[in-house]
């Protein structure tokens, strides 16, 4: 039984799938780290483009703005979506599905449309000029729905009667949240925070319309396109990808070990009964 066509086909499919997913990213990574950046095979290693990128003050300002945008959007949308998710799950009723549908509907609106309509709305009704603030608000609309979905999948396992227990034993609602609810649901909140951070950090379509003259990394990269694709752009893409991959890795490890250490698995507890 050495030759097993099924297994070989399976492995081939997996390999092709991963190549399809990651080859372009790896290509840009190689291009940004070699002198022969247009066709880096084999690569001649060099940090020239990287150092040119780091010396560019426009990119530095853009990075700062992107980080600020990401953190603000992630904080706001995680807090809002957390409150919404807890409300939906704690007080589940006949209308829960309707509320949920209305909360996640913005996911299905094209980002460009969201950008344009937010621009008009901010200008006409809120009197907001295009700046970081209006970009944060518009991004929160989109990220809120993602955060809600992520938290809902995590929180459906939480047994809300634990809150009842805490309150019967003398905990105020606030104390109940910080002593019982939060320690058990934080992986969901952290996951939502990280994903929304990455989304806002990388967002172009929504931010583009609302940023005004404020540069962020995606908008600067997009602007650079008009003057030809420069190697600095490769370096920028690689840096962003590295940061994102690091954040995802941290999240992965935290979720794994966090769950294993704290051991909040309702199904396991029931099995022990």
């Amino acid at each position: 039984m050495r030759f097993r066509p099924g297994k070989i086909a399976l492995i081939a499919t997996v390999v092709v799938s991963y190549l399809f997913l990651y080859l372009p990213i790896v290509h840009i990574g190689l291009a940004s780290l070699s002198r022969n950046s247009s066709f880096p095979y084999p690569p001649h290693w060099s940090f020239a483009t990287m150092s040119r990128l780091l010396g560019n003050s426009l990119y530095q300002t853009a990075l700062g703005n992107s980080l600020l945008l990401g953190v603000l959007v992630a904080t706001l949308s995680t807090a809002l979506a957390g409150a919404a998710t807890i409300g939906l799950m704690r007080h589940a009723g006949r209308k829960t599905t309707l509320f949920l549908a209305l909360f996640i509907a913005p996911l299905f609106v094209a980002e460009v449309l969201l950008g344009i309509s937010s621009l008009i709305f901010s200008g006409l009704f809120l009197g907001l000029q295009g700046n970081l603030g209006s970009a944060v608000l518009a991004n929160v609309v989109h990220c809120f729905s993602y955060a809600l979905l992520i938290m809902a999948t995590q929180l459906y396992r939480y047994d809300w009667r634990l809150d009842d227990a805490a309150m019967v034993f003398g905990a105020t609602p606030a104390r109940t949240f910080f002593e019982v609810t939060l320690p058990l649901i934080w992986p969901g909140l952290l996951g939502a925070f990280i994903v929304t951070f990455i989304m806002a950090f990388n967002n172009l379509e929504i931010s583009f319309y609302l940023l005004g003259a404020t540069p962020t990394l995606p908008s600067v990269a997009w602007g650079a396109l008009r003057y030809g694709v420069k190697p600095e752009l490769y370096a920028l893409a690689t840096c962003v990808n590295l940061v994102v991959l690091c954040v995802l890795a941290v999240m992965f490890v935290l979720m794994r070990t966090g769950l294993a250490t704290f051991g909040h698995r309702p199904e396991r507890e029931r099995a022990a009964v």
């Binding site: 047994d159 009667r161 634990l162 009842d164 227990a165 805490a166 019967v168 034993f169 019982v180 320690p183 058990l184 704290f262 051991g263 909040h264 309702p266 507890e269 029931r270 009964v273």
Partner: peptide
């Protein structure tokens, strides 16, 4: 104070 059917001990 209350004792629950599912115990509801704080798992963490």
């Amino acid at each position: 104070a209350m004792v629950f059917q599912e115990f509801l001990l704080f798992p963490h």
